[in-house]
Amino acid sequence: MTIFLQSLISGILVGGVYALIGIGLTLVFGVMRIINFAHGDIMMVGMYLTYMLFSMVGIDPFLSVLITFPLMYLLGVFLQKVLINRVLDALPQNQILLTIGLGLIMSNTMMLAFTSDYKILSTTYSSSSFSVGGSSISQPLTISFLITAAITGGLYWFLVKTNTGQAIRATAQDREAAQLMGINVKRMSGIAFGLGAGLAGTAGALIAPTYYIFPQVGSVFTLKAFVITVLGGMGSVVGAAIGGIIVGVSESMGAVYISSGWKDVVVYVIFLLVLLFKPAGLLGKSRM
């Protein structure tokens, strides 16, 4: 029972961070229909930013979100305007390769700037935890889970209540129709990519105190983000949040009840099953 509870709790907490990564990708995908292979690399840039702010200026990683998010938003808008925008109507395989190339550029630039050493961001609370009913709960992960929940809530409010948010959702639902309705689709794409990058960067900042940073760290998270996005339904924010937690919990349950080596297989099998039996995702509307 302890083992079950332990793996459930740590699965949910880690899933929170996954959710944030997934939400970023789902926004980009929903609005632009582009599979962004550089998403994990954007997150990696966010991790380095957090690391620099911490080691040079001494800003706490959780506080640094306030700086990381806007900076990463700007980076996202920039990438969208300069690169992604040019391939919006191109063949899908060209879009994929463009983002792959972009990812290579980002990770290798970081390698030149920071060398490929692992950077470990050790805060005073990095390994502190508290115990509930025999399960140990990581303090930094709990804080990041709460921040994630707040951001998800805020984003949801933004997308449902504000005009811009509604325009983004309309674009995600049907690009042509949105254009006909007079929505500035190009602008929405910029905002969506900016938000996607901002959220990925934030996820990077939140995981930094309990994880580690190196230039190639992104690819692991890119694949996870794909799974989460499809699980939740491409374009669905709440779906991605739930998808993130599902992935977190299946990983940690898989590690305990099957084996650590097979836990990722568990995730991919769930992913394929969802694709086959509910291709629109758990919360997405079918667009097949």
């Binding site: 332990q6 793996s7 699965g11 590690a255 650590s260």
Partner: peptide, 14 residues
């Protein structure tokens, strides 16, 4: 045997 780069080993360790 775990896959390198997983952020959470708590359940395995438990």
């Amino acid at each position: 045997a775990y896959a390198k780069g997983s952020p959470d080993y708590r359940s395995t360790l438990t």
